[in-house]
Amino acid sequence: MNELLSIANQNLVLHRHPKNKKETLQAWDSADEYLINYFMDNHLEEKLEGEEQLLILNDGFGALSCFFNDIKRTTITDSYLSLSSIKLNMQRNRCIESHLLLQDSLQSFPENIKVVLIKIPKTNAYLEFLLQKLQGKISADTIVIAAGKVNMIHNSTLQLFEQYIGTTKTSLAKKKSRLIFSQVDAKKEVEEKDIAVTWEIEKQQWKIHNHANVFSRNHLDIGGRYLMDNLPEGDFSKVVDLGCGNGIVGMAALQQYTDAQVTFIDESYMAVDSARINTLKNFEEERSDNARFVVNNGLVGFKARSYDLILCNPPFHQQQTITDNIAWSMFNDAYFCLQDGGELVIVGNRHLDYQDKLTRIFGHCELVTENQKFVILRAIKES
């Protein structure tokens, strides 16, 4: 796996985070390279004057944030893992930290934006959210350039740039990536709308709020529903919804374990805020006071033997890449944080072989139930 990005007379050592000893994927892609080369070939740094700055949206692991080390810039992402990667890669490459402001996607965009570099996200909903916020902060002479893999750029992608920014065109493809150029139309007036969606879970009569970048934002995730319907029996007092998304599994735990404290954890700022909104909206204050909401890389940094039940619907991708690294990390962290006798209960697609992974970590694993698509697995930490 290549860790050295050599581009435009710079050499950067870049790691993905969390770092995997057997990592086979590099921390940048050809879309990062295309953006950097275009910026440098067209001397866009010369466009930045006075307090004007560069805005970077959706940087994956810090290739863009680290490369433009000498330029005053703000990087915005919804991913805690991306922010952590950027910070670590900045330190690794001895970048000037005072030149970079890191923000999550729910914070306000900066003023004085002159150049915008965007990595195309997986979903149009999140792209629309970013473009809507951007539209109110740019002027006619702002330069807006986006990049993504060819298979991620569709007519609907370009239509969003046309809707919020202005006339849009694309470049030729290089290394299976393409650039998008949008000319800012200062006269364009787009009515602001709430990109978030809300729908109801009839069984519980819950109204579920979903920010733009929340997994399964348009409907109830069937894996999450299966886990909600198969929570373990028991008298649990400290529960975790690990990788909580919009919070439905943790909310089911709040409802079933009436004396329990439930901690909702996700690496997406939008997911954790959606879980917070949903819990406050659907539970009485006395019960919602027993809920805690944390943006974090799983259970990293949490105390050993501190929980008696961890519920998890693990992701099998990181950004655009299918991987079991996140699930492995979650399972190992869960073992560390469970009390003796504590339980990890997960839902997963049948083909993902989580049973073998849990057996290797816990020494055993029980199949609780299954259907044609999912399995519910339970592993108990023995003393």
Rank of each mutant, 00 (worst) to 15 (best):
H154T: 15
M152Y: 11
K149W: 07
L134E: 13
V150I: 13
K137V: 11
V150F: 09
D141Q: 05
F129R: 10
N151R: 14
L160Q: 11
L131M: 06
V150T: 05
T157C: 06
V150C: 11
M152H: 13
S139I: 06
N151C: 07
L131A: 00
Q132S: 04
N155G: 12
Q132E: 14
T167S: 15
A140S: 11
S139M: 06
I153F: 02
T142R: 00
T167N: 15
K137D: 10
N155H: 11
K149S: 13
K133G: 07
Q135D: 15
I165C: 13
Q135N: 15
Q135W: 13
T142S: 01
I143D: 01
N151P: 01
N155D: 14
M152P: 00
S139F: 10
E162H: 10
K137Q: 14
A140Y: 01
N151H: 12
G148A: 07
S156G: 08
T167E: 15
K149E: 13
T142W: 00
T167A: 15
Q159R: 11
S156D: 12
A147Q: 02
I165F: 11
I165H: 06
E162A: 09
A140N: 01
T157L: 05
I138W: 10
A146T: 05
L158H: 05
Q135L: 12
L130A: 10
Q159V: 07
T167R: 15
N151D: 11
K137F: 09
N151G: 09
V150A: 05
N155C: 12
Q159G: 04
I153A: 06
L134R: 08
I138G: 12
K137I: 12
F129W: 08
K149N: 09
I145G: 02
L131E: 12
S139L: 06
A146G: 12
F129V: 02
A140F: 03
G166C: 03
L130G: 04
L160V: 11
Q159S: 13
F161Y: 12
G136M: 07
K133C: 10
F129C: 02
A146V: 04
V150K: 08
G166D: 00
S156P: 01
I145W: 06
I153M: 04
Q132R: 05
T167G: 13
I153D: 02
I138P: 08
G148V: 01
L134Q: 14
F129Q: 02
I165A: 12
K133F: 09
L131H: 02
L158V: 04
N151L: 08
Y164N: 14
V144N: 02
F161A: 06
V144M: 01
V144W: 04
Q159N: 10
I138D: 06
S139V: 11
A140W: 00
A140G: 10
F129G: 00
I143C: 00
G166I: 00
A147M: 04
L134T: 04
V144E: 00
V144D: 01
